[in-house]
Design a binder for these strands. Structure first.
Length: 196
DNA sequence: ATGTCGATTTGCT
DNA sequence: GCAAATCGACATA
């Protein structure tokens, strides 16, 4: 059996946009106490280093918050948005290059009941983990998880051998980055649409 | 020190 | 469709 948990080499092995494409169909897992929750990554967006106006690290911006993005690939970048929503990113690439991938949606797999609990038992029609804020809420990820090593035993990503063909992956511009000028139109968002 | 606004979600009109 | 919720990061001074 090959090692399923993605290792540090993987996180540094390819361009951030290619990496975002390849994270579709991988399983993101969190462990909190004896509760394990997980889901297939079904939607994510690449934020490409210092040249990407949509990125927090655009133009080399380096602050206490963005410092995480400059870490070596394979750590989590988690920040607070609108004062109440946590955003979970996967840092990729070599140390010093601030590439990151925002996890926007998952298809829930393990611990679904516990994820419902974390979400406050939303109405049946409400998506459980569709949208970056709800993903973090369902998986129990908060700003305390910023800089968590993704090769550790708190948060990690597994390759379970699921192969998502290009025909099932929609590529679109990113959401909510209108401030980024021309870069707002870059095709850096990947959405898994099974059965397409 | 102060003001603006965000890689959003939810519920109400 | 619209606005409230809610706060820290960042820019400006």
């Amino acid at each position: 059996m090959t090692q399923r948990k993605l290792n540090r080499d993987f996180y540094q092995s390819r361009d951030v946009v290619r990496m975002a494409r390849d994270l579709i169909g991988k399983l993101v897992v969190t462990v909190q106490g004896d509760q394990l929750t997980s889901g297939w990554i079904s939607e994510c967006e690449a934020y490409a280093g210092v040249t990407d106006r949509a990125s927090h690290a655009w133009n080399g911006r380096r602050t206490a918050r963005t410092e995480t993005m400059y870490h070596p690939g394979g750590v989590a970048y988690v920040y607070l948005c609108y004062g109440l929503h946590h955003m979970m990113n996967v840092v990729t690439g070599p140390e010093g290059e601030p590439h990151a991938i925002l996890i926007r949606s998952i298809f829930p797999v393990d611990g679904i009941e516990f994820m419902h609990e974390r979400r406050g038992f939303p109405k049946p029609k409400t998506p459980l983990a569709a949208g970056p804020g709800t993903v973090c809420q369902a998986l129990g990820i908060t700003r305390a998880d910023d800089r968590t090593d993704l090769t550790g035993n708190r948060i990690w990503i597994e390759d379970r051998g699921v192969v998502v063909p290009d025909t099932e992956v929609k590529v679109t511009p990113r959401i909510g980055v209108d401030y980024a000028g021309d870069d707002a139109r870059l095709p850096y968002r990947f959405v898994w649409v099974p059965g397409e």
